[in-house]
Computed example of a mutant assay.
Amino acid sequence: MFEPVKNSFSPPAIAILLLDAENLQLNAEMEKFLTTVSTYPLQVKIAFANWSKMGKRDAELHQRGYELIHVPVGKNNADGKMIALGSSVHERYANAKEVIVCSSDKVMTNLCNHLQQNGLMVYQAITKGEVLIVLDSSTGKEVRQFPESTPEIPTIEVILQQIKQLIKAEQQQNKIYWVKLSALSKIFKDKYNFTIREVVSQHLPGKRARDIFINYPGDFAVHQVDTTSELYITLFEVNQSLAINSTEDASLSSAMKSPLLSSINSAADLEEALKDIFKELTIKSSASYIDISLLGGGFNQRYGKPITEQIKFLKLNGNFMKFLQSCKCFNLKQTGKAWQVTLR
């Protein structure tokens, strides 16, 4: 005879919501927010109240999928029923892993403790004014709140100093001259818990994140090869802010004191200017190659105009890369879609 096959199926884990409807008004938006707090799907929702005095609240909750438990009129009757039924919820729903207890009454602490002792993760949702606050019942610490609190953004002067400090730190740590806007934005968000975009939205409404650098040319220099490429940012005081070892003093001094061409009237002048800029950009860098966009940005910072404009003024054939390829003092190589340059 064949033995019957045992059913090894176990239902998926779920979360349960218990609501004291006489104590806490949980609207649809708040409920949706609570679904983002629990790890498991919120499958069971039970509300407790004397529905005869709740107007159309019972019909609304019923439409939202709640099981409605009616209690007689009387103080704390809803609390008592919720505690009694809630204490056995892990027995009625063996696959329950989380419970959200929605009530601001302190008496619910006993229910939360009991559920925790039976291996459930328990959150307590309370209200303070118009704000719904979710607490980790085991620690009493706030987990989330609805509406989400927005960080206080400092003045634009403070923000500019914060950004400058981050740029300097990146330059010193990575031995670079220019910092990508995308990298800077991530570092800023990680450190201050709000974005450069949020700063611009508050202080420069209608502008883009990059405009905080463009609007303060006395603090930042920006460079972009074309409209589809990365935006690079540096500081005007970068040469003074980078740490210099004693063994590097002579080479830095030489680069800093190299005479700037007052005017560039030929391809040879342009090549010599770019050679000086390359040396200055790589004083603190261990890499022999740099991105050509950084070299172009250095030219823009030094001479106050894009390298493409200078090439056009000299009536040279081709673009910036073509010009570098024609120079005797430079070698180029392609890395992915980018081109890098070094001195021969």
Rank of each mutant, 00 (worst) to 15 (best):
E237K: 12
N239Q: 14
N239F: 15
S241G: 06
S241W: 14
L242V: 13
I244R: 03
I244T: 14
I244L: 13
I244G: 02
S246N: 11
S246T: 14
S246Y: 11
T247E: 11
A250H: 11
S251G: 00
L252P: 00
S253L: 12
S254I: 04
S254H: 12
S254Q: 10
M256V: 09
S258P: 01
S258R: 11
L260M: 08
L261K: 15
L261N: 08
S262A: 06
S263N: 11
I264P: 04
S266D: 07
A267V: 11
A268P: 00
A268G: 00
L270F: 09
E271H: 03
E271N: 06
L274D: 04
K275D: 07
F278Y: 15
K279Q: 05
K279R: 14
K279S: 09
E280L: 10
L281K: 00
L281W: 07
L281N: 02
I283F: 11
K284M: 06
K284F: 12
S285E: 02
S286H: 08
S286N: 13
I290F: 00
I292L: 08
I292G: 00
L295G: 05
G297F: 09
G298N: 03
G298T: 04
G298R: 02
Q301P: 01
Y303H: 04
Y303P: 00
G304D: 10
G304L: 10
P306C: 01
I307P: 01
I307A: 06
I307E: 01
I307M: 12
T308F: 02
E309M: 07
I311H: 01
